[in-house]
Write a protein that binds this DNA or RNA. Structure first.
Lengths: 136, 136
DNA sequence: CTATTTTATTTCGAATTCGAAATAAAATCA
DNA sequence: TGATTTTATTTCGAATTCGAAATAAAATAG
């Protein structure tokens, strides 16, 4: 192997999936980044901005903007940590919870249709191969 | 399988690779999009804006901006097609050619280091699996 | 205990990105 | 042919994104 065809195919696959998700979440008035932030909070519960950043893979300056948007829409609250005043904890509001419980199952169902083109064995294999090249 | 872990891993891997490439091409004063456009022209030769768009996977309005930047830097020329005046053909200038022949091999070498964590067989398998979920 | 370094986050300005509307030329239709 | 539709591309304004600098609090060092 001496070309970058794999990268082309990887980028193209990611583009297809993320466009599809983006289209869905845009109907909720959310960007993909915003949705991923909500998703992290929905599954892992309240966390600091830095923790959230490590989950959603966007620059810290961008994340400030994103969480500000989400707070303005009333989906999350951001409060300073009592013990470490540098930290600000993000958590879903009732409205954010409600949004995600309305929407998340449909999101999974829709994306699973695509992923189910693979057998369980193939899907695990794909995960394994992606992890190998995705580290660092 | 009933979760979206695969998508998380896919996005994370793509993020890692694209950040790495981005970092390299930023040193040349190029964005990832600009570099991908140059790459397409370098390998497939002159083509219309629409053809280029199908290769680089960015919105048409964004591509207008990108090729304008590249033209301003002197890496490409954009000329109207004589036969179909709607079309505008993009092609590398001598300077653009020179840039890519200086830089492309290093780019491949660097990315191959990462991809070579996989055997040839695994890499072909990864391509196969990604194509399955990447269609549409 | 003060000074320095590290960690957490935001602000700022600039670059990039997008969708929708606009423009213009080619193709098709009636 | 003239009218309409389709195709190719750009322009516009707004949203998102980033990197670098700024801010502020905690941790560490001397």
């Amino acid at each position: 192997m001496n070309d970058l065809k794999t990268i082309t195919i990887l980028f193209r696959a990611t583009n297809t999936l993320s466009n599809d998700i983006q289209q869905q979440v845009n109907e909720l008035g959310l960007s993909l980044s915003s949705f991923m932030a909500l998703e992290a909070l929905y599954h892992k519960g309240a966390m600091s901005v830095a923790s959230l950043q490590s989950k959603v893979l966007i620059a810290n300056s961008s994340l400030s903007y994103v969480i500000d948007q989400l707070a303005q829409k009333g989906y999350i609250t951001i409060i300073s940590d009592t013990h470490d005043k540098r930290k600000r904890m993000c958590s879903l509001t009732a409205s954010g919870q409600e949004l995600m419980s309305d929407v998340y199952e449909k999101h999974v169902a829709r994306q699973r249709i695509r992923l189910n083109r693979l057998t369980d064995h193939e899907e695990l294999l794909l995960q394994h191969l992606l992890k190998k090249i995705g580290l660092d």
